[in-house]
Write a protein that binds this DNA or RNA. Structure first.
Lengths: 147, 147
DNA sequence: GGCAACTGGTTGCATCGTCGAACCATCTGG
DNA sequence: CCAGATGGTTCGACGATGCAACCAGTTGCC
């Protein structure tokens, strides 16, 4: 029954999250999240592909939480860049398997490097004694959001 | 020189943030962040206006971290809905002062209600003893991002 | 076998959201 | 009084997403 705005006030949390979203630049389509000449959503897809080597298109959609139509176009852009190859899925005439081309591997590598660089810079901007708390807080948040 | 991945590893931070972004659903254009029939960016603007009563357009742009052209159009949409009024800024012939109309106040009220509801739900999903830490961490993050 | 229901993909249409550049009007400082 | 900064608008381009309609292949069931 405290009248002071404390840790049980939703407004506090809302304010804090809103500030973060804006500061992180999530409002901008961010042509180059890390200085690389590549759109955000393509970067996400590239990351998934680099990690798994091969992916069914439908699986990519699931991971990125996008509709199949969006992903279809996304993959179209990536193949147009020569970064991804579509192949018929073995055992299912409908499906498509995606794989990075050598050029795509390179792009993914550059991207990963740039990303590491970016977060490295961010990390040093966080006072050392706060870092553990920040990481922990993010995990807590994700857990709360997943419910 | 520690080989363990600890609080000085950028990958940790990257991973944590990526997880948060996806869990928070920031990838989706989120037509109705809280079930209200209103686009996200308009909602943000509405929130700022509701809080301050009156705002210079340039100030709104600064807060939302958007360019003046984007904000100009955004405000155009809001006035088209009858939620915002443009008035010449007193003392500066160039400027524009924005104010919510009664109808805009209502819309902002509904929105605030829905948002409060949403964050309230999120808040209860965060263990009580973590709440202060989460809030603090978000502030630290914003500060680091601003550098 | 054959037919209905489902699933993976593609394409067309609509909407949202942002930026940069060009342009105009209005301050502001020598 | 003029040059440069500042606030706004408009235009053109791009990125990103969804839904609906459609096609093709798969599956389940009678």
């Amino acid at each position: 029954m405290s009248s002071e705005r404390g840790t049980d006030d939703p407004a506090e949390l809302q304010e804090a999250l809103r500030g973060f979203v804006r500061a992180f630049g999530l409002h901008q389509p961010e042509k180059t999240p890390c200085g690389q000449p590549i759109p955000v959503s393509e970067a996400h897809a590239l990351g998934e592909l680099a990690q798994d080597g091969e992916l069914r298109q439908v699986e990519l959609a699931r991971r990125l939480r996008l509709t199949k139509s969006t992903v279809s176009r996304l993959v179209g852009q990536l193949t147009a860049r020569g970064w991804v190859e579509r192949a018929p899925a073995p055992g299912d005439g409908r499906g498509v398997v995606l794989r990075l081309t050598p050029s795509g591997e390179r792009a993914a590598g550059n991207l990963a490097e740039a990303r590491r660089e970016k977060f490295s810079r961010l990390l040093v901007s966080i006072p050392e004694h706060e870092r553990e708390g920040v990481l922990h807080a993010l995990h807590v948040l994700v857990e709360a959001l997943d419910e």
